[in-house]
């Protein structure tokens, strides 16, 4: 298991749209990924679970990846969060 803590940089935090972008990326990775904020941990593949974490800009979240090539998947999810989850990189 690999994990990393990142700070949410996109303006709305994990609102519906960025949460959807993140959950879809997790789904596409085929890996078990958990997301933790404070003392709550959820299945990151579930957009609704990610939403209920109630994450805002500047919040710290921890991404945990299980399985083979966990490093690669973790790095790409971290870079997705850092690039703004579709709110920055690709104009909406």
């Amino acid at each position: 298991m690999r994990s990393q803590t990142v700070t949410l940089a996109n303006p709305t935090g994990l609102h519906a749209r960025p949460a959807k972008v993140f959950a879809q990326a997790v789904s596409a990775s085929g890996h078990q990924v958990r997301l933790t904020k404070g003392d709550t941990t959820v299945n990151a593949r579930s957009v609704l679970s990610v939403l209920t974490l109630d994450c805002h800009n500047g919040d710290q979240i921890t991404i945990e990846v299980e399985g083979d090539d966990a490093d690669g998947v973790l790095a790409s999810l971290v870079s997705l969060v850092e690039s703004g989850l579709g709110e920055g990189g690709a104009p909406s």
Binding site: Q24, R45, S46, V47, L48
Partner: peptide, 16 residues
């Protein structure tokens, strides 16, 4: 229109 894309993502949420 994006509100409905968000709704679609809720419908296919695996946790449901």
């Amino acid at each position: 229109a994006e509100i409905f894309e968000a709704h679609a993502a809720f419908a296919t949420d695996p946790e449901v």
